[in-house]
């Protein structure tokens, strides 16, 4: 049968910053083709196809319905694959190869992580599970 794609509404103007992204305006409707855990979603808007930030979208049908997994305060061990310097006060600065506990995997790709006594948001694309062995 036909593939029915989820429709989302754009909640903020977004200007593309690379050629595989698409520019969006508040109120645009997009159909989601793929949801990547790094917070970039592949979608169609009119005749354009490209990546857009999940944080700029809300579900058309049930905007208040939580889609996210519940936080896991026990934490899940991950290791940073890139350094990142916090730009907002709710983010965490970390160097490469630091071990952190992921406590909330947010769909926008900015996971909540704990390092010692500090918690903050960190890009999920710079994290890999500590349980997974990388190929040599």
């Amino acid at each position: 049968g036909p593939i029915v794609l989820d429709t989302y509404r754009v909640i903020g103007d977004f200007e593309k910053t690379s050629k595989h992204e698409i520019t969006l305006q508040t109120g645009d409707l997009v159909e989601i083709v793929e949801k990547s855990t790094n917070g970039w979603w592949f979608c169609q808007c009119d005749t354009s196809l490209g990546w857009v930030p999940a944080s700029y979208l809300e579900p058309l049908d049930a905007p208040e319905e939580p889609e996210e997994a519940e936080p896991n305060y026990a934490g899940e061990l991950y290791v940073t694959t890139m350094a990142y310097k916090a730009e907002l006060e709710d983010e965490l600065s970390l160097e490469v190869d630091e071990e952190v506990e992921v406590i909330h995997k947010l769909l926008d790709g900015w996971w909540e992580v704990r390092k010692g006594d500090e918690t903050g948001h960190f890009p999920s694309m710079f994290l890999k599970s500590a349980g997974r062995k990388e190929p040599a």
Partner: peptide
């Protein structure tokens, strides 16, 4: 390929959304 997502972290949610979530 176009199916490769961008290599940079996506922008944070618009400020209004962050306030709503907080």
């Amino acid at each position: 390929s176009i199916k490769q997502p961008p290599q940079n972290p996506p922008p944070r949610p618009p400020a209004e959304m962050r306030r709503k979530r907080a």
